[in-house]
């Protein structure tokens, strides 16, 4: 699509290297953009989501005439141009009111997408909750409630879970500061029932407060901080199987090596299996005393027998072929 650019100077070379595929990837950047028509509700919701996502965001301010389910070529182009693998397109129409489409790309090709229709009545912004907000770039705790998210088959809800988790989780970290556990995003959905409209997804942001419980663990309380968004799900596009397979492939050597022969038994005790080589008793140090010492004559005899054995060995080997 885009031509292969050869870097002309060191700066552009560095930039291209940064964008090239890496084994350990940088956090996914989200591009927020709007379609030909958008709404105030969408703008407010997107603003709040962008605040949660900061600093890994890009924003387009102008409107673009895109319809991802009809033609996604320009989205792929923007994804490549801005090096963003998540896109959030806000598009408002009579048929699909307040529709936020989350799009995920792999190698700058559309992987999967899902439409979230925002319920305008229940939307509350971050601002509307008068409390302290966590600092930018904090890793949130995320919870998903409801069995619909855990369907073994691929459904809209499992896709929503995967997308929201990818969208919200922030930077991958091997270590977190306990101070950084400041807020939680909770996503819940009621049970799916036959004959009823599919249940909406409730996205809530909570601050974590801890109290002394008088026990080892603290008592946790939550306080809503926003945003409060309710979605119903619209059209979806699942990932193609081979593309998904390629996308979830893990680079070699990242898995922690399982320690051989170390196990945990049912009681939770660590059990090790040890393999010992055969013991060589001839090397064993025994008690030193004169009577056990070998005499000089014996040693010479031993050496002679060894030499004799070697001679035998040579005789048994096949004779070399004579050269002509």
């Amino acid at each position: 699509m885009l031509r292969q650019v050869k870097p002309k100077n060191a700066r552009s070379k560095r930039e291209l290297e940064k964008r090239a595929p890496h084994e350990k990837e940088n956090p996914k950047v989200t591009l927020f953009l709007s379609g030909s028509k958008t709404s105030q509700i969408l703008k407010l919701a997107v603003n709040d989501l962008a605040k949660l996502k900061k600093p890994w965001i890009e924003k387009f301010t102008k409107k673009n005439d895109v319809h991802p389910f009809e033609d996604a070529a320009s989205l792929e182009f923007w994804s490549q141009k801005n090096d963003t693998s998540l896109l959030a397109l806000s598009l408002n129409s009579k048929k699909r009111p307040h529709c936020l489409t989350l799009i995920r790309t792999f190698d700058h090709k559309i992987l999967d997408m899902l439409e979230f229709y925002i319920n305008p009545e229940t939307l509350r912004q971050l601002q509307q909750f008068k409390n302290r907000k966590p600092a930018e770039g904090m890793k949130p705790m995320i919870t998903f409630h409801g069995s619909a998210f855990e369907n073994p088959n691929q459904t809209k809800y499992t896709l929503a879970k995967s997308l929201l988790l990818d969208f919200l989780r922030g930077e991958e970290a091997s270590e977190v500061d306990v101070l950084g556990l400041q807020y939680m995003i909770s996503v819940s959905v009621a049970e799916e029932e036959d004959g009823q409209p599919p249940p909406p997804i409730h996205l809530r942001g909570y601050l974590i407060k801890t109290k002394k419980s008088g026990q080892k663990l603290p008592r946790v309380e939550v306080e809503e901080m926003g945003p409060r968004i309710d979605f119903t799900l619209g059209r979806e596009r699942f990932a193609e199987e081979d593309m998904w397979k390629a996308a979830i492939k893990k680079p070699k050597g990242t898995e922690p090596r399982t320690k051989k022969n170390v196990d945990m038994d049912i009681m939770g005790d660590k059990v090790g299996k040890i393999h010992l080589p055969k013991q060589d008793f001839s090397e064993m140090q025994t008690r030193k005393m004169k009577g056990l010492k070998r005499s000089r004559n014996e040693e010479i005899e031993d050496a002679q027998t060894i030499v004799a054995e070697e001679d035998d060995g040579e005789e048994t080997t096949t004779p070399k072929r004579s050269r002509f």
Binding site: K139, P140, M141, I142, T143, F144, H145, G146, S147, F149, E150, L165, R169, V176, L181, M184, S186, S188, V189, A190, E191, E193, Q196, P199, H202, R204, Y206, I208, V220, E221, V222, E224
Partner: peptide, 27 residues
Amino acid sequence: NLLAIDTNIVPRDPSEEQLSAIARDAA
């Protein structure tokens, strides 16, 4: 991912109190 998954039943049309109670337990 600092992620918890709760497969317990969420009531239909939950109130905010119910949602925050669920969230508190999960937290």
